[in-house]
Design a protein around this nucleic acid. Structure first.
Lengths: 250, 250
DNA sequence: GAGTCAACTATGTCTGACATTGTTGAGGGG
DNA sequence: CCCCTCAACAATGTCAGACATAGTTGACTC
């Protein structure tokens, strides 16, 4: 009637648990995510590998389980890890492959940067197309005015991003569909949170400023094809800038 | 030497706490965020208003504080609330009117149905395009399998929407970008809540089912142009159906 | 050799406690 | 009367322990 005892410990994640001994506990100011990144790098974990369980991570890093969970949940939302009840937490994104020079933190965040941009791109293009079709005469004038304002600020060498923001918001308003503005605002926020942290403020999008004038004029004149064209170019330029910042293209 | 006692309770958040009595506890399957949305709507909270404290929310909704915290932290990341130690949690974004997280308010207006679709459309098309380019061989096979499953269920005259959902989810997964799936899931949720309530279950999208097979095959074979083409047609058909349901075009 | 099933593993959630910080309002001094 | 100080309060941040639930494994049975 007695069931047998299990003596052997399977330990699928030898790599991780072994390195865990060398990880220093968190000192004040150090972030849990940084420590996790350090662990992943040290253990050379790749896609599909299992991370140590929460309790062990918490013990080794000297923090509570809640902090570990918060960090891992954040990563799951970003698609970096996959967590399963009963099973463990596994690496999901390709983050440990190339370009050894760049710290892993930057790689992680660069991934999210590209992903966010990939979602933003079609929304922005469609918003411009809709605006070109739906805008009222009044709105077309305002768009041109915002564009002029943007160019002035830019040529004066000042910080042009607030003006850029107002310009794009006007376009979203002109679509007649508030969802565009709201969704992109969400994405934009995530975007900023990401790229302002690791990369400083690299003035992303600078190379595309000159394209804003013809784009605005295309919207104002109702030229759907040109408007979409210019927007696509702008998005491509921004994407190229992102890839340049994070080094080697995918 | 004795410091005075404080008898008065300041209660800045009268609105919220008052309505809290009427909120029903969470039943299985209901989401914490939905309950919070309901509370915010019922209390007519606007930007800057304070939400009830975590412990009270947890008590009233019949869940642990950890779930409340998880939900509120997620909202903070999205910029919907701002949380401060010592102070409380306050509404940051205008979500009382339109938001992907607030299907309840949108139910009222049939117009938002079209708006939601307008946002979903470019996302879906881009997701298909990306999937066509990025999918692994394995994923292409799974997409074809899901499509076959969908067609079988459809031709058997059963409810095909679960299968349809699985099919599209597989496409989103194949993009390699979890954001597409997440965003569209949000939108999809709002979409369903809207059209299922006022219009019954009109099987939206029925006329486009036949297009799913060539679309899946285009994805599987890497034919970007055809895939985008079929998807565009599908979205156009759905849009036409929506317009028909809500009566007169726009 | 294949299937069964119990022990094990790991995450999800609840509860209670304490730490830390913002807010408030009474009291004292000018 | 106004401003400043400061102690009590309120609310979130964090930790720790416990239980629930679901996936995984491997020895045993047939």
């Amino acid at each position: 009637m007695l069931r047998p005892e299990r003596k052997t410990l399977p330990s699928d994640d030898l790599k991780a648990s072994k390195v865990l001994n060398h990880i220093k506990p968190l000192v004040a100011g150090r972030d849990v995510l940084d420590a996790l990144v350090e662990l992943i790098e040290a253990a050379k974990l790749t896609v599909g590998d299992k991370l140590p369980p929460e309790v062990e991570l918490a013990r080794r890093l000297g923090v509570g389980r809640s902090k570990i969970r918060e960090a891992l949940n954040a990563w799951q939302k970003m698609g970096i890890v996959v967590r399963n009840k009963g099973a463990g937490t596994r690496l999901a994104a390709e983050i440990a492959s190339h370009s050894v020079h760049m710290p892993l933190t930057m790689k992680l965040e660069a991934e999210s940067l590209l992903r966010t941009h990939a979602v933003r791109r079609p929304l922005e293009i469609e918003a411009v197309r809709l605006a070109t079709v739906e805008a009222t005469d009044q709105q077309r004038k305002v768009i041109l005015a915002r564009m002029a304002e943007l160019m002035a600020v830019y040529e004066a060498g000042e910080d042009w991003r607030p003006a850029d923001h107002r310009f794009h918001n006007e376009i979203f308003a002109a679509t007649g569909n508030p969802l565009f503005g709201q969704l992109i605002a969400q994405i934009q926020k995530a975007f900023q949170d990401i790229y302002e942290a690791p990369f400083g403020k690299p003035h992303l999008g600078q190379n595309s400023i000159v394209l804003h004038r013809p784009m605005a004029e295309a919207i104002a004149s109702g030229d759907q094809i040109s408007a979409v064209n210019y927007t696509t170019q702008i998005m491509d330029i921004v994407e190229a800038e992102v890839r340049e910042i994070i080094g080697a293209g995918k």
